[in-house]
Amino acid sequence: MPADAVFAAEAVTGSRKPDAILVVNGMHRSFGGLAAVDVGHLEVQRGVITALIGPNGAGKTTLFNLLTGFDRPDGGSSTFDGRPVTGLPPHRIARAGMIRTFQLTKALAKMSVLDNMMLAAPHQRGERIVYAPLRSAWRHQERDVEERAGSLLEKFGLADLRDDYAATLSGGQRKLLEMARVLMAEPKMVLLDEPMAGVNPALVESLLHHVRELRDEGLTVLFVEHDMDVVMGISDWVVCMGEGRVISEGRRRSWPPTKR
C-alpha cells in the first residue's frame, strides 16, 4: 500500500520524502505588507493523502492559487512531477495533471450535470474549432466521454441528476459533482480546497470514501480541511500552516485507532 510509504519520511518541517510529486521551494506572496504565503520547503509525497490545516487566513487557499497558476508568487518556485510549473498559466498546469477545486464550489450552474462532467475530459478533438463543426470528427470520442462521465456519476450517486442543471443541486451534491468532475480530467494529483465544508454529515461519509478511493487508485491528494475528525480520519500526512508558513508536518497520529 503506497500510503505506508509515509513511514519513510521524517516528521520534520520541510522534510524530504521518497518520490515527491510536488516540491515547493521558497515560495512567497504578499498582499500589501501582509505575507500571505512564505513557504520555505515543502514536499508532497506521491500516492498519499496529505491534509493541509491551519487557522483562517493561514494562507492555504493562497498557496493553492500559487501552485495551480491562478496567482503568481513574488518569488520561489514549484515543480510538479519533475517539471517546473511556476509561471505557467493555470490551464497548462491543469493539463500537466494537477487539478484543483475551489473553496466556493464552481459547479457550472447553467450547464447540466452531464455537461459539467463532459467539459472536463482532456484531449477532446471536438474542442478544436476546426473540427467542431464536423460532427463525424468527434462523435466517437464524444460517446466515450459520455460513457465515462456516466459511470463516474453513477459512482458518485449523481446518475439520476445527469440531465438536471447543476443549479438545482444541493451544496453537498455540488461538492460531489466537483470531485467527480476533477476525476473526469484524469489528474495525477488533486488539490481540494475544503471539500467537506458545508456538507451534511451523511454526505461527508460518502465524500471521505471517495477521497480514499482516489488514493487507492494511485492519485495524490492534497486537501484543506478544518474538521480535525476528518483530517485524522483519512489523511496519511498532515501539514500545518500558520501566518503563511509551514509550522509543522508529520504523520497522522494513530488516532482514532484503526485496524491497520
Partner: peptide
C-alpha cells in the same frame, strides 16, 4: 454546429465561470 460541439461547451463554461474552465485545463 459550433455551439452544439464540445467547442461550444467550453464557450458556455467560459461565459459562466472562466476560472472553472481554466482549472479544468481549458485555454
Amino acid at each position: 454546429l459550433l455551439v452544439r460541439s464540445p467547442w461550444g461547451r467550453v464557450l458556455r463554461s467560459i461565459r459562466e465561470d472562466e476560472d472553472a474552465a481554466r482549472s479544468l485545463g481549458k485555454n
